[in-house]
Design a protein around this nucleic acid. Sequence first.
DNA 1: TATGAATGAGCATTCATTCAT
DNA 2: CATGAATGAATGCTCATTCAT
Lengths: 227, 227, 227, 227
Amino acid sequence: MTGTSPRALNRQAKERRILQAALNVFAAEGYSGTSMDAIAAKAEVSKPTLYQYFGTKEQLFTEIMLSRRNEMLDAFEHPSSEGMVRDLYRFSWAYADTVLNPDFLSLARLIIAEAQRFPEIGRAYQASGPDRVLRGVMAYLDSQREAGRLQFDDEELAAEDLWALILSAPRNQALHVPDALPDRAAVKRYIDNGLRVFLKAYSTDPTSDLDQLKRLCEQAPTPTGTA
Amino acid sequence: MTGTSPRALNRQAKERRILQAALNVFAAEGYSGTSMDAIAAKAEVSKPTLYQYFGTKEQLFTEIMLSRRNEMLDAFEHPSSEGMVRDLYRFSWAYADTVLNPDFLSLARLIIAEAQRFPEIGRAYQASGPDRVLRGVMAYLDSQREAGRLQFDDEELAAEDLWALILSAPRNQALHVPDALPDRAAVKRYIDNGLRVFLKAYSTDPTSDLDQLKRLCEQAPTPTGTA
Amino acid sequence: MTGTSPRALNRQAKERRILQAALNVFAAEGYSGTSMDAIAAKAEVSKPTLYQYFGTKEQLFTEIMLSRRNEMLDAFEHPSSEGMVRDLYRFSWAYADTVLNPDFLSLARLIIAEAQRFPEIGRAYQASGPDRVLRGVMAYLDSQREAGRLQFDDEELAAEDLWALILSAPRNQALHVPDALPDRAAVKRYIDNGLRVFLKAYSTDPTSDLDQLKRLCEQAPTPTGTA
Amino acid sequence: MTGTSPRALNRQAKERRILQAALNVFAAEGYSGTSMDAIAAKAEVSKPTLYQYFGTKEQLFTEIMLSRRNEMLDAFEHPSSEGMVRDLYRFSWAYADTVLNPDFLSLARLIIAEAQRFPEIGRAYQASGPDRVLRGVMAYLDSQREAGRLQFDDEELAAEDLWALILSAPRNQALHVPDALPDRAAVKRYIDNGLRVFLKAYSTDPTSDLDQLKRLCEQAPTPTGTA
DNA sequence: TATGAATGAGCATTCATTCAT
DNA sequence: CATGAATGAATGCTCATTCAT
């Protein structure tokens, strides 16, 4: 409002419209399957405008991929402490909500699909997506180890195990079968089980932690509960 | 000569050549990125032949995808018993060798990429790939539970946990960054850790099993040892 | 007829049709001004056929230019002797008929126009067009010098002078003003004058030769007489 | 300051910049090969300015062509008399320097190239370039005839012969092969020979004039000598 | 006045598919 | 049965031109 001319506003808005449209089409049709005409039509912009804004199909694609990578992963960065089991529980749900979100899954499919054609994109995604979150989880687990509540040698493996136990199965299935997203009950099953196994293997006081987990599982079936 | 005329043989051979060529190109370029010309050239066949054999690009694609789904997953179907820990160790390596094979990864990328355009293919893959193996693992784990060596309520979750702990991390990374396949040392790290966590959580006699695992890990760095 | 399949015949015919159409359009519109659509339409062929036959606009262009360069210059290669003045007279008219032919002029314009974009074409034209004819003329003039009828030191300059005196003026004008081709009377004026000057400067017996030329000029106003 | 406001100055300057840029690009790429974007970029002007100043690509082109036609041909209009042979010699070099100048050749190529698309331009060039110079030469030759030093019936043919003998060969070659401009030695060869032939055919006192020419040729290898 | 932004139409090229042989 | 040859319909991209500011 303060200093951006109406033109500039228009420009930004148009840019966003294009990016959104392009993301949609790319996600639905893949890189090669997407035509610039389709994007222009969906964005309600003329083709030359597309090219003036983004230069090339390739550039448009990489721009989208590299700009979108962060947006969707900022949610669960800093698990605030209300007790370890509670923390892990809330973190798991936040993670699941992001990773199993249909748009995010489409993006992931697209990245995987074009990993060979656009290696930088795959690398960038890995670095700024999974790897960054992993680092956050590692830091948290480390703090719990220092507090004497967890035990492990390799914090990277520990963090990866947490992810894997909670999300590997539903995510893989969702990647393969897009129209069969796991419902919240299914997700709950994976989270509850994953955390149980994780605590059994890593907790310094499994009995108590598992007990606490059990209570959590029973009381709050689907904490964030959108669907 | 034993029932198949030379013509038929020729036909079969040509069919195989086409399928192989098509798989290669599809895996490298994706569905939309692949042209029938490219396939015909690689198969050294004329384009009309392609169409006579497979009707349509779509049909050719689904044919390949549905025919290839079994071939690559037959290796580790029946874990033969030489003691549970030993069994799991050998099974893990067989699994890893398959799942992290570059061709198999390309195929997986392709399936994920086209999951939206060809839902049946994703479903078929899920059913005849992961799900079928899962069933085998479930049966094995069940037998061990009945023998009193493992404890769990939900054998599906147990089997999925085993897969996840061993392969989730390296597979995801390999999907995103194709040119950075984990070497055998990295795979060993994941397998050793994954089995440790699995046994800690599921074994009825963790102390002994982990001990046995430790010896296995030390003696045989890379059991199947191709690379 | 003996060994060319009807297909091949068709192919050749089509190729010729394309080349002819392309030459026309290129000559009329220049390289950049010519669209493959226009060529395809004029040749009554589909665009993909064009591309299958000639690969690229550039390739089609160079193909035409390099193939046409000879065709039009074969006429006057061997001046057959019926006496020097008579020879020169007939040669001059053959030369003029070729060089001032509208199609040939279009081609020349095109070559000059694209000399910077396609240097090889300009070079090839110069080598196989002007330079080749020049060599023929040089040989003839040389023979006349040896027979004692002409005198000069540098036969290349002599041949170039002949060309220049006869054709330079009308050709330059025709290049600049395409719709004002010199009629045969104008050409006759240039030829008669050019030969007169040439003989005055180069003949060992100018009086007799000029006399003979005068008679030739008077008797046969436009020897080859098409227009 | 003397009547032109700074605005107007600015305008004139911009106009010149545009014309210069346009000429460069047109000469290098031809009419169709030149984009208004390219001109605007080279002139460092916005495209709408281009259109405001010159209306249309076509108009801009004709404007340039018609405005440039005179500039380059004013040099050698009035041969000042220091003796006929000397005059002709100096005139020949001035002519050659202009006609074989790379920029002038580019312009000529452009005119020839677009002669069919823009007939007025070709006509205008012919009228205000070659024809005007021709008229000057004719007047000079006429004066020498009246002074008894030359003999001829048709002064137009005489003037054209002079041009042709001197410049036809190198100019034609330069038109076809742009990167092989004749060096000064080559030009000298053509001029010396051309004048010799011209004098042989047209002088009333060839012996003396050729003698004088010989001396001139020997003493001043490249009179105007820039390159 | 000068310009950033916009566009309909067109360009060279390629695609999946089908004849005619 | 196999194929060279053909094509309508795209595809990525650019052009001359014009608004809105």
